[in-house]
Amino acid sequence: MIHTSTKYMDLKTQLLFFFSALGAFNGIIVGIFFLFYAKPKHRSHLFLGLLLLALSIRVGKSVFYYFSYDLADVYIQIGLFACWFIGPLLYFYTKSALEINRTIKKEVKVHFSILMLIALTLFIGFPRAQYEDLWFSVFIQSIYTQWIIYVAISGYLIWKHYTKLRTVKNSIPSFKFWFLSIYIGNTIICIAFNTAHYTSYIVGALSFSFVFYLLILLLLFAKKRNELLFLNPPKYLDKSINTKEAQLWINKLENLMKEEQVFKDTNITLPKIAKKLAISPNRLSMLLNDTMKISFSNYLNKKRIEEAQKIIKNNPNYSLETISFDCGFNSKSAFYAAFKKHTGKTPSKYRDLTNS
């Protein structure tokens, strides 16, 4: 009886280790997928991939520490270092997924520069092996508290966009279910780690495995994956343009602008240009936004301003108002604003410098 009981306990421990570590291992693989291979490319995939990697490293550290108490301090610090970034990555995943059209590049750079500076100060300036008491009494608690704060801020951001989420018309399983599963799952994992001293240190790892496989099931059984991953999935997400084809269409577009100068038409639209090129409006939009990295309106204005610059050089006596209408602008104010944006100078200043 004693021998059987010992064997049963060994098997139980092995199963516990297997299920705890499985989520962390596969989380790293899926994190790498979202970082480098998920298509279409989107900034929310970047933050989701990094979030999964940070969670996987943190959970992996917990698993090995639970089953091997003599784990080297350097691995423990790597796990805590990853934990420091989980909350911020959740916040920026939430922000990038909900605020699709908002630019956050500068905010991200400033934010993570400060976080990295604090992290390097703590982990290099106060090694855990030398300051173990300080880490247990202050630093670890600070890391977990920071995680909770970011979970709360992300929750507030979701609440602020509640109306937008409520009106999403995607089929089930939809973006709402996917997105809220990530947030709620992260919250559960955060609570599990923060209450480990009341339950068990391994609960956080088991929670991550459960949440992770729930997300994988959602991905596998989603009929329309883009509707699962995006709040407002563009219609052309699954129809990428390869480099050779893109260059062909760019050449055709540039030739059309040069030969027919359609930009001079104040009523020109993207569908009208697409019809002239014999390409779908969605595909032309993708060509401009994804390949050429410019919006349709900015592309038109760029062509109009280039033409205006030629006219100003060759006809210094033309009135600026005449030039603006000749180049396709429907108002003088729109011409001035576009000219200043593209050249850094007002039209009159540019004319003075050109003809001086």
Rank of each mutant, 00 (worst) to 15 (best):
P234V: 13
K235Y: 10
K235I: 14
Y236S: 12
L237C: 13
L237V: 11
L237G: 06
L237F: 10
D238R: 07
K239F: 14
K239A: 14
S240A: 14
S240P: 03
S240N: 06
I241A: 15
N242C: 05
N242Q: 07
N242D: 13
T243L: 11
T243K: 12
K244I: 09
E245T: 04
E245D: 11
E245S: 10
A246R: 00
A246T: 00
A246N: 02
A246K: 00
A246C: 03
Q247A: 04
Q247M: 03
Q247N: 03
L248V: 02
W249R: 01
W249I: 05
W249A: 05
W249L: 05
I250Q: 09
N251A: 12
N251I: 10
N251R: 07
K252T: 02
K252V: 01
K252A: 07
K252F: 02
K252R: 08
L253W: 01
L253H: 03
L253N: 04
E254N: 10
E254L: 09
E254D: 14
E254G: 05
N255M: 10
L256E: 09
L256T: 08
L256F: 03
L256C: 08
M257A: 13
E259Y: 05
E259A: 10
E259N: 13
E260H: 01
E260P: 00
Q261F: 01
Q261W: 00
Q261S: 12
Q261I: 03
Q261P: 01
Q261M: 06
V262T: 02
V262Y: 00
K264V: 15
K264E: 15
K264H: 13
T266E: 15
T266W: 09
N267W: 07
I268W: 02
I268Q: 06
I268Y: 04
T269E: 12
L270M: 10
P271H: 14
P271Q: 13
K272R: 11
K272Y: 08
K272N: 12
K272D: 15
I273G: 01
I273Y: 01
A274F: 09
K275Y: 10
K276I: 11
